[in-house]
Amino acid sequence: MNQSALSLLLTRASCGLLQAPAPDGEILEHILQAGLRAPDHGHLQPFQFLLAEGEGLNRLGTLLAESAKADGAADDVIERAAQLPLRAPLVITVVAKVTPHNKVPEFEQHLSAGCAVMAMQMAAQAQGFGGIWRSGPLMYSRRLHELLGLNERDQIVGFLYLGTPATSLRIPSFANSADFVRRI
């Protein structure tokens, strides 16, 4: 049994307080490769990873604010949207790149991209970095999808914020699996 892999899975924790440095080079490549190993029915590779770091964080913030404005958000929400990417030194927008397929429905392709987010977060944690998978109403904004050059069928499945933890990770307490299991 691979105890270190099991330990990683059992101690998975999100970290919302992130600072520089962000993963880069070979470490970032490992994170991206982990995402590409997500379960993928039909070998469609239904994902795309949009990386924002440095000035790209400000560009992403501008796109988020413009999308919030186009979607009719209040002024304070628009202002906050512009600042969202600045909470980490690296933000990966993970997109389900949907391909019409007679055996692989869109939903499965969305799930595959979601698995990629989890795999990348775990790969970051395994290499000493922290991360948090964020969502929110802007990930459903068709205006944001347009601004990012995505197709009509594509769907953002999350924003993966990565960096160095600015605080110690709080490992969630174990839940009683019996509360979530029903044998059939």
Score class of each variant (00 low, 15 high):
61 G>L: 10
24 D>M: 06
99 T>E: 15
50 L>K: 04
53 E>W: 00
50 L>E: 02
86 L>T: 09
21 P>Q: 14
38 A>C: 07
100 P>Q: 11
81 A>M: 09
91 V>Y: 02
65 A>S: 13
85 P>G: 13
73 A>H: 02
19 Q>R: 12
53 E>Q: 15
95 V>P: 06
71 D>A: 13
17 L>H: 11
63 L>T: 08
30 H>C: 03
68 A>W: 03
22 A>T: 03
35 G>N: 08
103 K>T: 09
47 F>A: 12
27 I>D: 01
102 N>T: 13
40 D>N: 11
67 S>G: 00
101 H>F: 06
29 E>A: 09
54 G>I: 08
25 G>Q: 02
99 T>V: 15
88 A>C: 03
27 I>M: 02
19 Q>Y: 05
29 E>P: 01
68 A>G: 07
95 V>Y: 03
88 A>Y: 07
15 C>I: 09
91 V>N: 15
49 F>V: 11
97 K>V: 14
100 P>V: 12
77 V>I: 14
86 L>E: 05
59 R>K: 15
90 L>E: 05
46 P>Q: 12
103 K>N: 04
14 S>L: 09
69 K>H: 15
19 Q>T: 14
72 G>W: 10
89 P>F: 12
58 N>M: 06
96 A>K: 03
54 G>C: 03
87 R>L: 10
87 R>W: 06
